[in-house]
């Protein structure tokens, strides 16, 4: 069923991590990414790994789902690892033609791979435990200061949540148009890439027209319900920090201090 599709990769389960304020999670993810970029020794990576494992356990999301996110970076990972392996100057291990593998290369490539994997896993926790709507809310609130310099933060986040609402509707509509065109003899399957792309035209034109029509209707409905931008608007579900968020902030700061401390000492 097309209407049942889930957007993003939210994993619905009740955990501390899920209940946390999206701003806290955004902050935590940022801290984690920063900490990965300052890490340069084994001990620091171990600390980062421990932090990650703790976060995964707290989110109660099966590890299976976490690892799924890694599939998309396999190619990137292979390329960067092999470049680092063979192109880092240093003590050679062996040599094939102009390619030589060095001890420094092995070390560097290893750290690189771990860093990338941690990076993806860390941000996957955010998207697995936060609904797209919540994420949009969190971004709107955390980036609210940009509004002062003229960035339309509220408008962009409103657009994002409307887009999220309409994606399933438009997918369903695409399906309907496709069937209607197929019933009249359109062929979407055969032919080479160019022919296939051409076959999409009778699908896209009606889809766009209907999307614009929906947009006009929606704008009218929003105006009829007194929508006039973000000013003077109240929130039904305002974001509020709870004790767990304060604790999480504290943990993040502690973690960052430890990481920086380890880097300075070692």
């Amino acid at each position: 069923m097309l209407r049942d599709i889930t957007l993003g990769q939210y994993y619905p389960i009740d955990s501390v991590m899920h209940r946390m304020d999206p701003r806290t999670k955004l902050f935590g993810t940022m801290v984690y990414i920063v900490s990965l970029f300052i890490a340069d020794s084994l001990l620091v990576y171990v600390a980062a790994a421990l932090f990650l494992v703790a976060a995964i356990r707290m989110s109660k999301v099966p590890v299976k789902f976490m690892v799924r996110g890694l599939k998309s970076i396999v190619v990137l990972l292979l390329i960067s690892v092999s470049f680092n392996l063979f192109l880092t100057p240093g003590t050679p291990i062996f040599k094939i033609g102009f390619l030589q593998m060095t001890w420094e290369g092995v070390e560097f490539a290893g750290f690189m791979a771990v860093r990338l994997i941690f990076l993806v896993l860390g941000s996957t926790i955010l998207t697995l435990t936060t609904t797209p709507n919540h994420l949009t809310d969190g971004l709107e609130k955390s980036l609210g200061f940009l509004g002062k310099v003229g960035v339309p933060v509220h408008e962009v986040s409103m657009m994002m949540s409307i887009a999220l609402r309409f994606i399933p509707i438009l997918i369903e509509e695409t399906d309907k148009i496709m069937k209607a065109q197929m019933a009249r003899g359109a062929d979407f399957e055969s032919g080479n890439l160019i022919q296939k792309a051409k076959a999409m035209v009778p699908l896209l034109v009606p889809l766009f027209i209907s999307a614009f029509r929906r947009a006009t209707d929606l704008a009218m409905a929003m105006e009829a319900r007194c929508y006039r931008g973000g000013d003077g608007r109240t929130k039904m579900k305002p974001l509020r920090y709870e004790t767990r968020d304060r604790v999480a902030y504290l943990v993040c700061f502690l973690y960052l201090t430890v990481m920086i401390g380890l880097k300075i000492i070692l």
Binding site: N133, S161, I162, L164, R165, R214, D217, L218, A221, M222, R225, C226, Y227, R228, G232, R233, T234, K235, M236, K237, P238
Partner: peptide
Amino acid sequence: NQIIGNVVEEDVGFGPENMGVPT
């Protein structure tokens, strides 16, 4: 084309939100 919220209750709250009604 007239439902804005992603959840039923949020959509019902959209009008009052625009009017600046307290939470």
